[in-house]
Computed example of a mutant assay.
Amino acid sequence: MLPALQTNDTIQAIRDRALWMRRTAFGMVHKAQLGHPGGDFSAIDIIATLYVGVLRFDPARPDWADRDRFVMSKGHATGALYTALCGAGYFPEGWLETYMQPRSMLNGHPNRNYLPGVETNTGPLGHGFPVAVGIAIAGQLAGADWRSFVLTGDGEQQEGSNWEAAMVAGHRKLGRLTLIIDRNRLQQGAGTEETSGLDPLDAKYRAFGWEVVEVDGHDPEALLAVLGATPGDRPRCVIANTVKGKGVSFMENQAKWHHGVPNDEQFAQAMRELV
Protein backbone atom coordinates (compact mmCIF):
# COMPACT_ATOMS: atom_id res chain seq x y z
CA MET A 1 0.00 0.00 0.00
CA LEU A 2 1.21 3.47 -0.88
CA PRO A 3 2.60 5.28 2.20
CA ALA A 4 0.88 8.46 3.33
CA LEU A 5 2.78 11.63 2.52
CA GLN A 6 4.25 13.13 5.69
CA THR A 7 4.02 16.82 4.91
CA ASN A 8 5.76 17.77 8.15
CA ASP A 9 8.85 15.78 7.27
CA THR A 10 9.68 15.88 3.56
CA ILE A 11 12.93 13.91 3.89
CA GLN A 12 11.22 11.02 5.65
CA ALA A 13 8.38 11.18 3.14
CA ILE A 14 10.90 10.81 0.30
CA ARG A 15 12.53 7.82 2.00
CA ASP A 16 9.15 6.18 2.57
CA ARG A 17 8.09 6.79 -1.03
CA ALA A 18 11.39 5.46 -2.41
CA LEU A 19 11.10 2.27 -0.36
CA TRP A 20 7.54 1.72 -1.58
CA MET A 21 8.69 2.37 -5.15
CA ARG A 22 11.51 -0.18 -4.90
CA ARG A 23 9.30 -2.90 -3.44
CA THR A 24 6.48 -2.21 -5.88
CA ALA A 25 8.67 -1.89 -8.97
CA PHE A 26 10.46 -5.16 -8.19
CA GLY A 27 7.09 -6.85 -7.76
CA MET A 28 6.05 -5.55 -11.16
CA VAL A 29 9.23 -6.86 -12.80
CA HIS A 30 8.87 -10.22 -11.02
CA LYS A 31 5.28 -10.63 -12.20
CA ALA A 32 5.98 -9.55 -15.78
CA GLN A 33 9.40 -11.27 -15.99
CA LEU A 34 10.43 -8.20 -17.93
CA GLY A 35 12.05 -4.91 -17.01
CA HIS A 36 15.22 -3.07 -16.02
CA PRO A 37 15.39 -3.22 -12.22
CA GLY A 38 19.06 -2.26 -11.86
CA GLY A 39 18.49 1.14 -13.46
CA ASP A 40 15.15 1.51 -11.69
CA PHE A 41 16.85 1.15 -8.33
CA SER A 42 19.72 3.53 -9.08
CA ALA A 43 17.23 6.24 -10.13
CA ILE A 44 14.41 5.78 -7.61
CA ASP A 45 15.76 8.07 -4.88
CA ILE A 46 16.22 10.84 -7.45
CA ILE A 47 12.73 10.45 -8.87
CA ALA A 48 11.08 10.14 -5.46
CA THR A 49 12.78 13.38 -4.41
CA LEU A 50 11.46 15.15 -7.50
CA TYR A 51 7.86 14.01 -7.12
CA VAL A 52 7.62 14.34 -3.35
CA GLY A 53 9.61 17.49 -2.74
CA VAL A 54 10.48 19.45 -5.90
CA LEU A 55 8.13 19.30 -8.88
CA ARG A 56 5.09 21.55 -9.23
CA PHE A 57 2.26 19.49 -10.77
CA ASP A 58 -1.42 18.67 -10.52
CA PRO A 59 -2.34 15.03 -11.27
CA ALA A 60 -5.95 16.07 -11.86
CA ARG A 61 -4.70 18.31 -14.68
CA PRO A 62 -1.78 16.51 -16.38
CA ASP A 63 -1.61 19.23 -19.04
CA TRP A 64 -1.73 22.17 -16.59
CA ALA A 65 0.19 24.93 -18.36
CA ASP A 66 2.12 26.03 -15.26
CA ARG A 67 3.37 22.59 -14.24
CA ASP A 68 7.06 21.76 -14.03
CA ARG A 69 8.10 19.35 -16.76
CA PHE A 70 9.96 16.08 -16.07
CA VAL A 71 11.36 14.03 -18.95
CA MET A 72 12.50 10.48 -18.23
CA SER A 73 15.15 10.18 -20.92
CA LYS A 74 16.35 6.78 -19.66
CA GLY A 75 13.00 5.46 -20.77
CA HIS A 76 13.76 1.81 -20.04
CA ALA A 77 13.53 2.50 -16.27
CA THR A 78 9.74 2.40 -16.29
CA GLY A 79 9.44 0.63 -12.96
CA ALA A 80 10.81 3.79 -11.35
CA LEU A 81 8.75 6.19 -13.47
CA TYR A 82 5.41 4.37 -13.22
CA THR A 83 5.58 3.94 -9.46
CA ALA A 84 6.48 7.63 -9.14
CA LEU A 85 3.50 8.70 -11.27
CA CYS A 86 1.18 6.39 -9.37
CA GLY A 87 2.49 7.67 -6.04
CA ALA A 88 1.93 11.23 -7.25
CA GLY A 89 -1.73 10.45 -7.95
CA TYR A 90 -1.79 10.29 -11.74
CA PHE A 91 -3.49 6.89 -11.85
CA PRO A 92 -4.73 4.22 -9.40
CA GLU A 93 -2.42 1.66 -7.87
CA GLY A 94 -4.26 -1.18 -9.54
CA TRP A 95 -2.90 -0.14 -12.92
CA LEU A 96 0.57 -1.23 -11.82
CA GLU A 97 -0.63 -4.84 -11.86
CA THR A 98 -0.90 -4.61 -15.65
CA TYR A 99 2.78 -3.71 -16.19
CA MET A 100 3.89 -4.89 -19.65
CA GLN A 101 0.77 -7.01 -20.09
CA PRO A 102 -0.97 -7.09 -23.49
CA ARG A 103 -2.86 -3.82 -24.16
CA SER A 104 -1.58 -2.29 -20.92
CA MET A 105 -1.04 1.46 -20.77
CA LEU A 106 2.16 0.69 -18.82
CA ASN A 107 4.44 -0.28 -21.69
CA GLY A 108 8.09 -1.20 -21.49
CA HIS A 109 8.80 2.39 -22.49
CA PRO A 110 6.62 5.37 -21.50
CA ASN A 111 4.04 6.63 -23.96
CA ARG A 112 2.38 10.00 -23.37
CA ASN A 113 -0.57 8.96 -25.57
CA TYR A 114 -1.48 6.25 -23.07
CA LEU A 115 -0.44 7.41 -19.64
CA PRO A 116 -1.12 10.71 -17.83
CA GLY A 117 1.96 12.45 -16.46
CA VAL A 118 4.32 11.29 -19.22
CA GLU A 119 5.70 14.38 -20.99
CA THR A 120 7.19 12.67 -24.03
CA ASN A 121 7.75 9.18 -25.38
CA THR A 122 11.24 7.90 -24.62
CA GLY A 123 13.16 4.69 -25.05
CA PRO A 124 15.81 5.15 -27.74
CA LEU A 125 18.58 6.67 -25.65
CA GLY A 126 19.69 10.20 -26.39
CA HIS A 127 16.21 11.43 -27.36
CA GLY A 128 14.76 12.72 -24.09
CA PHE A 129 17.46 15.27 -23.31
CA PRO A 130 17.11 17.13 -26.64
CA VAL A 131 13.32 17.17 -26.18
CA ALA A 132 13.77 18.62 -22.68
CA VAL A 133 16.00 21.35 -24.11
CA GLY A 134 13.27 22.17 -26.62
CA ILE A 135 10.71 22.32 -23.79
CA ALA A 136 12.99 24.66 -21.84
CA ILE A 137 13.46 26.91 -24.88
CA ALA A 138 9.66 27.12 -25.22
CA GLY A 139 9.41 28.17 -21.58
CA GLN A 140 12.15 30.75 -22.00
CA LEU A 141 10.47 32.27 -25.06
CA ALA A 142 7.14 32.43 -23.21
CA GLY A 143 8.71 33.99 -20.11
CA ALA A 144 7.24 31.15 -18.03
CA ASP A 145 8.31 30.46 -14.45
CA TRP A 146 7.97 26.68 -14.61
CA ARG A 147 11.08 24.49 -14.66
CA SER A 148 12.21 21.57 -16.82
CA PHE A 149 13.99 18.52 -15.43
CA VAL A 150 15.42 15.60 -17.39
CA LEU A 151 16.99 12.36 -16.12
CA THR A 152 19.47 10.48 -18.30
CA GLY A 153 21.50 7.38 -17.67
CA ASP A 154 25.26 7.78 -17.71
CA GLY A 155 25.72 5.27 -20.52
CA GLU A 156 23.21 7.36 -22.43
CA GLN A 157 25.69 10.23 -22.34
CA GLN A 158 27.64 8.37 -25.04
CA GLU A 159 24.98 9.41 -27.56
CA GLY A 160 26.05 12.40 -29.65
CA SER A 161 22.57 13.96 -29.59
CA ASN A 162 23.11 14.79 -25.91
CA TRP A 163 26.13 16.94 -26.68
CA GLU A 164 24.27 18.90 -29.34
CA ALA A 165 21.54 19.50 -26.76
CA ALA A 166 24.09 20.50 -24.12
CA MET A 167 25.71 22.98 -26.49
CA VAL A 168 22.36 24.62 -27.36
CA ALA A 169 21.24 24.78 -23.73
CA GLY A 170 24.50 26.40 -22.64
CA HIS A 171 24.41 28.88 -25.50
CA ARG A 172 20.82 29.91 -24.75
CA LYS A 173 21.49 30.06 -20.98
CA LEU A 174 18.48 27.92 -20.10
CA GLY A 175 18.62 28.60 -16.39
CA ARG A 176 15.31 26.85 -15.69
CA LEU A 177 16.60 23.54 -17.09
CA THR A 178 18.12 20.87 -14.85
CA LEU A 179 19.81 17.77 -16.27
CA ILE A 180 20.29 14.88 -13.83
CA ILE A 181 22.74 12.15 -14.78
CA ASP A 182 22.21 8.81 -13.04
CA ARG A 183 25.92 8.06 -12.63
CA ASN A 184 25.93 4.37 -11.65
CA ARG A 185 28.91 3.67 -13.94
CA LEU A 186 27.30 0.57 -15.47
CA GLN A 187 25.43 0.05 -18.70
CA GLN A 188 24.15 -3.01 -20.51
CA GLY A 189 26.91 -5.57 -20.31
CA ALA A 190 29.82 -3.56 -18.88
CA GLY A 191 31.05 -0.43 -17.14
CA THR A 192 30.70 2.94 -18.81
CA GLU A 193 34.41 3.75 -18.63
CA GLU A 194 35.23 0.35 -20.11
CA THR A 195 32.74 0.85 -22.96
CA SER A 196 33.36 4.48 -23.92
CA GLY A 197 34.86 6.65 -21.20
CA LEU A 198 32.83 9.63 -19.99
CA ASP A 199 35.09 11.21 -17.38
CA PRO A 200 35.58 14.02 -16.69
CA LEU A 201 31.84 14.63 -17.07
CA ASP A 202 31.90 17.70 -14.84
CA ALA A 203 34.57 19.49 -16.89
CA LYS A 204 32.80 18.66 -20.15
CA TYR A 205 29.54 20.24 -19.03
CA ARG A 206 31.30 23.28 -17.60
CA ALA A 207 32.99 23.73 -20.98
CA PHE A 208 29.51 23.88 -22.54
CA GLY A 209 28.47 26.69 -20.19
CA TRP A 210 26.64 24.67 -17.56
CA GLU A 211 26.66 24.93 -13.77
CA VAL A 212 27.70 21.50 -12.47
CA VAL A 213 26.97 19.94 -9.08
CA GLU A 214 27.87 16.45 -7.84
CA VAL A 215 25.67 14.78 -5.27
CA ASP A 216 25.04 11.42 -3.60
CA GLY A 217 22.11 10.15 -5.65
CA HIS A 218 20.79 8.12 -2.72
CA ASP A 219 20.75 10.94 -0.15
CA PRO A 220 17.29 12.59 -0.17
CA GLU A 221 18.46 15.55 1.89
CA ALA A 222 21.32 16.34 -0.48
CA LEU A 223 19.14 15.73 -3.54
CA LEU A 224 16.39 17.99 -2.22
CA ALA A 225 18.87 20.79 -1.56
CA VAL A 226 20.34 20.59 -5.08
CA LEU A 227 17.19 19.91 -7.10
CA GLY A 228 15.07 22.38 -5.18
CA ALA A 229 17.63 25.19 -5.34
CA THR A 230 16.64 28.45 -7.00
CA PRO A 231 17.48 28.44 -10.73
CA GLY A 232 20.43 30.56 -11.83
CA ASP A 233 21.33 32.08 -15.16
CA ARG A 234 22.80 28.88 -16.61
CA PRO A 235 21.44 25.35 -17.08
CA ARG A 236 22.33 23.05 -14.18
CA CYS A 237 23.88 19.58 -14.56
CA VAL A 238 23.50 17.38 -11.48
CA ILE A 239 25.83 14.38 -11.54
CA ALA A 240 24.12 11.99 -9.13
CA ASN A 241 26.52 9.26 -8.03
CA THR A 242 24.47 6.11 -7.61
CA VAL A 243 24.65 2.33 -7.28
CA LYS A 244 23.01 0.12 -9.86
CA GLY A 245 20.51 -2.13 -8.07
CA LYS A 246 20.72 -0.04 -4.88
CA GLY A 247 19.08 -1.71 -1.89
CA VAL A 248 19.31 -5.38 -2.88
CA SER A 249 22.58 -7.12 -2.11
CA PHE A 250 22.73 -9.48 -5.09
CA MET A 251 21.86 -6.68 -7.54
CA GLU A 252 24.16 -3.90 -6.41
CA ASN A 253 26.91 -2.97 -8.91
CA GLN A 254 26.06 -5.93 -11.14
CA ALA A 255 25.79 -5.15 -14.86
CA LYS A 256 23.68 -8.28 -15.45
CA TRP A 257 20.84 -6.65 -13.49
CA HIS A 258 20.54 -3.93 -16.11
CA HIS A 259 17.71 -6.03 -17.49
CA GLY A 260 17.76 -9.08 -15.20
CA VAL A 261 14.52 -10.42 -13.77
CA PRO A 262 14.17 -12.24 -10.42
CA ASN A 263 13.05 -15.78 -9.80
CA ASP A 264 10.79 -16.50 -6.83
CA GLU A 265 13.69 -17.03 -4.42
CA GLN A 266 15.43 -13.81 -5.45
CA PHE A 267 12.19 -11.87 -5.19
CA ALA A 268 11.60 -13.16 -1.66
CA GLN A 269 15.15 -12.24 -0.63
CA ALA A 270 14.77 -8.74 -2.06
CA MET A 271 11.54 -8.21 -0.11
CA ARG A 272 13.34 -9.22 3.08
CA GLU A 273 16.13 -6.71 2.39
CA LEU A 274 13.88 -3.84 1.31
CA VAL A 275 12.57 -2.76 4.71
Results as ranks from 00 to 15, higher is better:
residue 227 L to K: 00
residue 264 D to K: 06
residue 231 P to I: 02
residue 235 P to G: 09
residue 273 E to G: 04
residue 267 F to A: 09
residue 243 V to E: 02
residue 230 T to K: 15
residue 224 L to D: 10
residue 254 Q to T: 08
residue 235 P to T: 14
residue 275 V to F: 08
residue 237 C to H: 07
residue 226 V to L: 10
residue 265 E to H: 12
residue 228 G to R: 05
residue 236 R to V: 02
residue 265 E to M: 00
residue 246 K to M: 04
residue 259 H to P: 00
residue 235 P to M: 02
residue 273 E to M: 07
residue 245 G to M: 03
residue 249 S to L: 13
residue 264 D to L: 06
residue 231 P to Q: 12
residue 236 R to C: 11
residue 230 T to P: 01
residue 260 G to W: 11
residue 255 A to E: 11
residue 258 H to P: 10
residue 242 T to I: 07
residue 250 F to D: 11
residue 274 L to G: 03
residue 223 L to H: 04
residue 248 V to H: 03
residue 243 V to L: 13
residue 261 V to I: 13
residue 230 T to L: 14
residue 258 H to G: 07
residue 247 G to H: 04
residue 237 C to N: 09
residue 223 L to C: 06
residue 267 F to M: 15
residue 275 V to T: 14
residue 275 V to D: 15
residue 259 H to N: 08
residue 240 A to D: 05
residue 229 A to V: 03
residue 239 I to R: 08
residue 236 R to I: 02
residue 270 A to K: 01
residue 223 L to V: 05
residue 226 V to G: 08
residue 231 P to L: 05
residue 228 G to I: 06
residue 231 P to W: 09
residue 256 K to H: 11
residue 257 W to Q: 09
residue 232 G to E: 07
residue 237 C to V: 04
residue 265 E to K: 02
residue 274 L to T: 07
residue 249 S to I: 00
residue 262 P to A: 11
residue 245 G to K: 06
residue 255 A to T: 15
residue 259 H to Y: 10
residue 233 D to E: 15
residue 248 V to P: 01
residue 234 R to G: 10
residue 235 P to C: 01
residue 231 P to H: 09
residue 234 R to N: 10
residue 249 S to P: 04
residue 226 V to C: 08
residue 239 I to V: 11
residue 239 I to E: 08
residue 228 G to A: 04
residue 252 E to T: 09
residue 228 G to W: 02
residue 226 V to S: 05
residue 268 A to R: 15
residue 233 D to G: 08
residue 267 F to K: 02
residue 248 V to N: 00
residue 270 A to S: 02
residue 272 R to W: 00
residue 259 H to L: 03
residue 258 H to F: 14
residue 255 A to R: 11
residue 247 G to Y: 13
residue 244 K to T: 12
residue 249 S to K: 12
residue 229 A to N: 06
residue 271 M to F: 05
residue 260 G to F: 13
residue 262 P to I: 01
residue 234 R to D: 08
residue 236 R to G: 02
